[in-house]
Design a binder for these strands. Structure first.
Lengths: 216, 216, 216, 216
DNA sequence: GATGAATGAGTATTCATTCAT
DNA sequence: TATGAATGAATACTCATTCAT
């Protein structure tokens, strides 16, 4: 069993090695233009070896998403575990957490966006697909909880917590995508962080219930 | 002249015919998995004919973006032309306009996102690229104007109008992408419209300066 | 009939117009890379029109060869018509004539070389092919005659006149091809004319029967 | 090391296998009409494999030229290494050698002629192009040396050795091309060898300095 | 497990040729 | 006759994936 375990760990190490390489290559070239050959070279392995650890290109790519989602969930749950904090404090912590996730892997949004394609979904192991769905579900659930809490406590505007969470997440992903695109096209300076901070600030103002009564 | 004109119109009709087919095929399969053969078949033309009207696949795709952007700009400028309206009214009209644009072509966000790729940019006629950049620039400029006006009149929170416009646009594109993805993955009901309405509402609350003084 | 004739002449004019354009385009791009579209544009005609005058691309190309061969034969026969001249004088005149032909159309050798391909031959009208063969036959026959005469008169070395003519022609075409290739590869100065003069001079020395007896 | 070496040798074997197939196909169909598919089939390999060993079609073709040029240089240098021989004997040996080269690969002239195209040159690896230029340069240099020697010793007519070498080479290539063309067109017997012998004989007579003085 | 050579299906693009006007 | 838009067959090249060693 000790041997079994060691083998298991060794195998996991290899998977990580490949994923690190894949992340670099996919970041640089995007999914279509990155070749398995590229990734193998970056990982200092042979193309064939990649297939010992990942069913195919799509699954390798999806595994990257999985890893980010795992990290995302970890951070979100950590935020939710802040026992003494109120929903507003948790929301602020959540914003920080999500920016951390973005910095951990800026591809997060593009990755998740890639999952949209039904062809992609078809090529995944049902198991992997389930894991992904599960992680997304849990993460969103955790976010929803904060909003539900905030609404319940009368701190946030009284809207469906799921809708609030969707808006929150959309704002996050929208800023990342738009600011990245904008930079590509107009080749100007990168204001992503600032815009993100502003966006979250506005959102926060938007959902707050004011003492004197909001527009609602 | 009559003949010249008729030919010109005939040619334009063909372009449209191809673009309509391309839109259908790209919507269904995405850029990479759509083949020129597919599009030709959809357009009931031969593959070679496509190349009489579009330099290559990338340019055909980008032409779709161009068309949406033209429509977008048209709608935005129309909003801005509402003479008697104040910034807050214009902003509300803008939200409506953008949803119309989305309904006119739901691919708008994905298309614009596709432009990000430097490989895509390389394959475009400089002229087409310029047109696209110009349209994006004008559209954003028009949106910025509304915010600048609102800030100047003390109606909107005092932030950089460009940043406000970026946030506005990010929210729009983020909701579309996220709600589309979500539907793909969880196969649930499509709450896009409602989420968009909520998102814009929150945004509007967020930028408003309250009578009793904002948080700023 | 006057009308018939005029039409005939008009038709011939068009053929010439196309051939002139084709010659320019083929010279610049070579057979494979030249497109019928290119030629049509150069001729200020539409692609379809080309096919009213030439069966296909191969035949258009072969027609250029035919024209040069016609000119070649004309010049050779003119040389042979120099009544009072002896074979040695005629040979010198022939050399001059052939260089004129080369200047008239430097593609002569490449054109003739192109005919080699059996696929080319297959694509020609039998009639055109016959004309070409006929012209080549007559031209070579005319050249052979000079050598036969020279041999008979004891001026030229006693070898088969056809073989002498073949050698003569080979030398001519070899110099043109080699000097052209050489220039392409080494990008140096063009010594074609000088080499041609030297080559013919050596050839002349080589076939001469010396007063004191040759090496033969 | 044994393994490295074996792999290297195996790889070289494959290259040869492909080149042999390519030679057959190119001989039969010429460059343009030969397809990579044809060659792959002839080599009993898949099209993709060809690209593991050759960058593209042009480079595969050029590699054939390279091989012949290598053999050519080998033979020429061997001739030049005949220590006790005088220039006249070397020249005769050279003629033999060149005919051997032709028999080794009758495409030699056509191949070299193909290199003329600037489009071909563009598609080659700079390294391959350099090798080719180098081989041509060395071969011509070696031939020039024989003539320079002959001129210096008063055996050959006093002309620029480079020009003599060009003429010599032109004669060789011209005879091959012309006799091949002629056979194609007139479908008669192949007199190539005889014509080549005669041509070289005449050339030899032409450059010889006679005891009683030449025509020069 | 690891390799990497081989595969071969897949595709954008070109261009000689046709034919309705 | 002339046009030139449309055709569609043809082909070089790529790359995810496999499998013998």
């Amino acid at each position: 069993m000790g041997i079994q375990e060691r083998k298991e760990r060794e195998k996991e190490r290899r998977r990580q090695q490949i994923m690190v390489a894949a992340k670099r290559v996919f970041s640089e070239k995007g999914f279509s233009r990155a070749t398995m050959e590229d990734i193998a070279q970056e990982a200092e392995l042979s193309p064939g070896t990649l297939y010992l650890y990942f069913k195919n290109k799509e699954e390798l790519y999806a595994s990257l998403s999985l890893r980010i989602l795992q990290y995302l969930l970890l951070r979100i749950e950590h935020v939710n575990a802040l026992k003494p904090a109120g929903p507003d404090e948790k929301l602020k912590a959540l914003m920080e957490a999500m920016y951390d996730v973005y910095e951990f892997d800026p591809l997060i949004i593009i990755n998740m966006f890639h999952l949209q394609s039904s062809d992609t979904l078809k090529n995944l192991t049902p198991q992997l697909l389930d894991e992904i769905k599960d992680l997304i579900g849990k993460s969103m659930g955790s976010i929803v909880k904060i909003f539900r809490d905030g609404v319940a406590k009368g701190l946030f505007i009284d809207r469906h917590p799921v809708a609030l969470a969707d808006t929150f997440w959309s704002l996050f992903s929208g800023v990342i995508l738009w600011m990245t695109s904008k930079k590509m096209i107009s080749e100007g300076k990168d204001h992503l962080k600032e815009t993100l901070v502003l966006a979250f600030d506005l959102f926060y103002r938007g959902i707050q219930v004011k003492a004197t009564g909001g527009s609602d």
